[in-house]
Design a protein around this nucleic acid. Structure first.
Length: 197
DNA sequence: AGGAAGATCTACT
DNA sequence: GTAGATCTTCCTA
């Protein structure tokens, strides 16, 4: 399968140059395209979470700049990949100018390349392929090597493309964090069976 | 140099 | 529903 990604589909720098909560919400329904050798894997974003800077105790940027968080202080539209409990987690840097933030991609609905995702994940069940932040990085082979990747460049191995689709959005508190904020910063597509819980 | 934390997953009951 | 595995980064000495 050959996919032509043109400029009108690719989410651009300005898309990510906004409040993380807004970007998290608007990423729902968009398509994550992973070019893996000669193969293409595609998933639809169905669950996200927003993280901020020093005002957010659950954020990696809470205590300032370190090896993981430094990208959150930098240019929006880049990937942030790091390990939690032996699982890779993937985020996209997103924030207003001179701010700090990122959006965690928590779940995808598998769209294309399911056979490869299944072998990557060693399962036959569609619903177990990408229904969690660690699962989807396994399914799509997203690793530390992708840390810092610019996904606003259409030649990148991983890109996000627009998708005009209507659906209901639900908001909730973030999962797995020790100290959450008072705001609901987890967003997911209502009644979608590929959401993590 | 050692230990604990952490935005998780799996397998088991 | 809970236990144990897992591994990178950071903190403290």
């Amino acid at each position: 399968m050959h996919i032509l990604i043109n400029k009108s589909h690719l989410l651009n720098y300005n898309f990510y140059l906004r409040d993380p909560a807004k970007v998290a919400k608007e990423l729902l329904g968009k398509l994550l395209v992973r070019k893996l050798g000669n193969n293409i894997l595609i998933g639809r974003v169905v669950e996200t979470e927003a993280y901020f800077g020093s005002e957010d105790p659950a954020s990696r940027a809470y205590k300032g700049v370190n090896k993981i968080s430094e990208l959150m202080f930098g240019k929006p539209g880049r990937l942030l990949v790091y390990v939690v409990h032996a699982n890779n987690l993937v985020n996209v840097v997103a924030h207003n100018i001179n701010n700090v933030g990122a959006v965690l991609i928590r779940a995808l609905e598998p769209i294309y390349g399911l056979d490869i995702m299944k072998s990557n994940r060693n399962t036959n069940k569609d619903v177990h392929l990408c229904s969690g932040p660690g699962k989807l990085t396994q399914a799509l082979c997203i690793e530390r090597a992708h840390h810092g990747l610019d996904i606003t460049n259409r030649n990148s191995e991983i890109v996000l493309i627009d998708n005009k689709e209507k659906f209901d959005i639900q908001e909730a508190f973030r999962i797995g964090v020790k100290k959450d904020l008072a705001k609901r910063l987890r967003f997911f597509i209502k009644d979608n069976k590929f959401v993590s819980r």
